[in-house]
Design a protein around this nucleic acid. Structure first.
Lengths: 149, 149
DNA sequence: AAAAAGTCTACCGGTTTGGTAGGGTGTTTA
DNA sequence: TAAACACCCTACCAAACCGGTAGACTTTTT
């Protein structure tokens, strides 16, 4: 499960994507609109800044904003920055790999299954970006093609 | 990430699958061979018994054993019994669903992505069973078909 | 200089995790 | 029938993590 920290991070990023190119956004605005505890959000945004996702401006007219285009930041990256490994065991992780002491990966059935899970998860998370977080109508009244038919 | 409890559970189950139809297996045997703290393992096996995966026999010649055939127990089930939800957010979970307060699922991009992740994960975990945990040779010297070619 | 707004350090209570201790209970066998 | 065997049950515990708070500090703008 995602931690609340990661959940809040994604909410805040969603907000910043919606306001992309509208200049810096106040922490307090995000906190209020997304119902995130202010001081907790401060930590999160600062962390996202220190890891290169966000940038900020102090003083009047300041706030936080995305450093790069939303479509350049993969969901997987954000996830790893906040919550760490995506894989379900260290011996299956690409970015946080650690050998497991008690089992031989070559003959561990669990290892196999969790590698599959990891790959299936990454196939999605590495191909979605912050741009995919924002509102799109999921049930358009008319279809895309031949809406009258 | 899996908790240690779940990891140990899968190790113990793997052991019991290997000894399936050889009668009850001692907790102490599993603990020793799989290097799992004995008293911790007791808890885990008892839990797996109480939830219907395992059965046990007391007294001399006793021990734990699988209640049903290994191929009848899905990996997803064991996972849920020990670690709970497979989904990454409560609002995306099938077995542990909870509405999220701050966002409208219909217009939440994160929700969409995590539903995809859930489905991809379940496609694997619901189609693998305890039988898939045991040793198979992953790199046979000869192929399955026309090994000489 | 004052106000605005992010930055930094520190702390803290509650829950979960990963165990440990020790006696209780049911079964088998000598 | 009693000893040995092996699981069962309750309770406890330390460390880590999670979610959040407090408050002073720095930088920027007006």
């Amino acid at each position: 499960m995602l931690t609340k920290k990661a959940y809040y991070a994604f909410q805040a990023l969603t907000h910043l994507v919606e306001k992309y190119n509208e200049g810096p956004v106040l922490i307090s605005e995000i906190a209020e609109e997304r119902k995130i505890p202010l001081k907790f959000l401060e930590n999160i945004l600062l962390h996202l800044k220190n890891t290169g996702i966000l940038d900020s401006k102090k003083g009047k007219g300041g706030g936080y904003f995305l450093k790069n285009s939303p479509s350049e930041i993969k969901i997987a990256k954000v996830f790893r920055l906040i919550d760490g490994p995506i894989a379900m065991l260290p011996c299956v992780s690409l970015y946080f790999y650690q050998r497991c002491e008690n089992c031989n990966e070559k003959f561990c059935g669990l290892h196999d299954i969790l590698v599959e899970v990891r790959d299936a998860t990454l196939a999605i998370m590495e191909n979605r970006t912050l741009a995919d977080l924002i509102l799109r109508d999921k049930n358009p009244v008319g279809g895309l093609v031949s809406p009258e038919m």
